[in-house]
Computed example of a mutant assay.
Amino acid sequence: MRTSCAKLVQHGPRGRAGDEVKGERVSEAPESAVPTATPEGGDQPPGEASSGGLEYAWTIATVSQKFGISASTLRTWERRYGLSPSARTAGGHRRYNGADLDRVQLMQQLLDAGIGAQDAAKVVLSLDPAGVAAALVDVAQLDAPTRGALSPELATETLVMAAAQLNVDKIGRTCAQVIQERNVAEAWQEVFAPALDQIGRRSKEGSLPRAAPHLAAQQLAVELGSAVRATRSRTDRGGAVLLASACRDEHWLPMLALQAALAQNGIASTTLGTYVPLEEVAETARLLESKAVFLWASTRQPLHLGPWRPLWNLDPRPHVVLGGPGWGDPAQHELPTGVEFCPTLGGAASLVRDHLD
């Protein structure tokens, strides 16, 4: 899916909405490019050569006409955000090459998607020419209807780019399609978790808007909730399975994913959410007569008996399944009877299902 720099130069810059402008080559004389030694509309004095050493390049007037962006806006992007052409003539006149045109197009598409100019410029400038070309391919796929099953790689890249554009509708539709095409446990491991990790990491690095991780998580939560509601009429009594985060762990999406995975197998469950003390988890399990309790932890949690006494003292004691990286390596600990650890969502769903039979 990645487009190389060589291919970009060979095929020329793309037009609007991801359509390729065929027949344009930097190494030949495209209609929209001028020899740097030839004047065009008075923009360049005769005989002036490009300081970037390019034989042919696009003037700012041509770029403005090509993309429908005023020359003053192009100059503003350069002055405020550093989005400048790669070359200038000896007289200081701007000259854009094919990679520069791709950057301008990507900037325009991100702005059209509703991303602020500063965040959009950060995204564009964080990518090398091959990355910009690949992003344009992704944007073209985002704008086109999705046909057929999404591979995990394409689904992940689609979610990341939709988050970069703050494209709420595309995030939701992609999540819904992934859930429809595969079981939720598989979708979490292969698509949602990797996508959320990339979005969060790139947001911290500054190449994605700060709001991107929150927006992606919220839309995924909506679609997981829809998957649960769609199966509610054919699921068992919800109280038999209780899902909660350990102590003050704030991560709640894995619980929603497990709830949806169980619902796909006809098992209803009750989710307590985050920041619920273990005493309240134990009390809820007692009142609902829960047969299984799933506890997710993404932050470090103790495995010694003390904090868990309220849950261990229940009679009958529900089977407890621990999930998430916060438990460290449970193999190094002696887990109490009736407690199991499973690192994957699918495995946790299977364990819970087994203890309901």
Rank of each mutant, 00 (worst) to 15 (best):
L111S: 12
H93M: 13
T158S: 15
K66N: 01
G91L: 02
D143F: 07
E78H: 11
L110P: 04
L111H: 07
L166I: 00
V123I: 07
D112S: 06
V124S: 05
N97D: 15
L136W: 11
E157I: 08
S64C: 04
V132A: 02
L125S: 08
S84A: 15
G116E: 09
A162T: 00
A133Y: 03
R95S: 12
L74Y: 00
T158I: 08
E157T: 14
Q118E: 14
E153Q: 11
D128A: 10
T89F: 08
A164S: 13
L74C: 06
V123T: 15
G131L: 13
S84H: 02
A90Y: 09
P152A: 14
I60C: 08
A162M: 05
R95H: 06
L166M: 09
E157P: 00
L150S: 02
R88A: 10
R95A: 12
L142G: 12
V123P: 01
W58Y: 15
V124Q: 03
S86E: 07
G131T: 06
A90R: 11
A149I: 08
T156W: 06
Q108M: 08
Y81V: 01
D112R: 14
Q165M: 14
D112P: 02
L159P: 05
Q105K: 03
A140T: 03
E153N: 13
V132D: 03
A162K: 02
R75T: 13
A164I: 09
A144H: 05
A121F: 08
Q165D: 05
V63S: 01
A87E: 04
S72F: 08
E153T: 14
Q141P: 02
L166E: 12
A61G: 14
W58A: 03
Y81W: 07
V137A: 14
L154G: 06
S126M: 04
Q165L: 12
A61E: 13
R147F: 05
Q109C: 00
L106Q: 01
Q105A: 14
T156C: 15
T73P: 06
G92A: 09
K66M: 09
I69H: 13
W77N: 00
V137M: 13
Q118F: 11
Y96W: 07
Q118M: 07
I115C: 13
G131Y: 11
A121N: 08
T156K: 15
D100W: 03
E78N: 04
G92E: 03
M161G: 05
G116F: 02
A134D: 15
L106K: 00
L142V: 08
M107R: 13
L74M: 05
A140F: 00
R94C: 12
V139R: 08
Q109R: 13
W77E: 00
D128C: 01
R75G: 11
R75E: 04
S84M: 05
A87C: 15
T76S: 04
G98L: 01
S151L: 01
V63A: 15
R147M: 00
G98I: 14
P85Y: 06
H93Q: 15
T146D: 14
A130T: 10
H93N: 13
G82F: 01
P129D: 12
L111V: 04
Q141S: 09
L154Q: 09
Q165C: 10
R95Y: 09
G116I: 04
M161C: 12
Q105C: 03
V123K: 12
R147Y: 12
S64N: 02
T156R: 08
D138P: 10
T59F: 01
S64E: 05
L136Y: 01
A140V: 00
A163E: 05
K66R: 15
V137H: 10
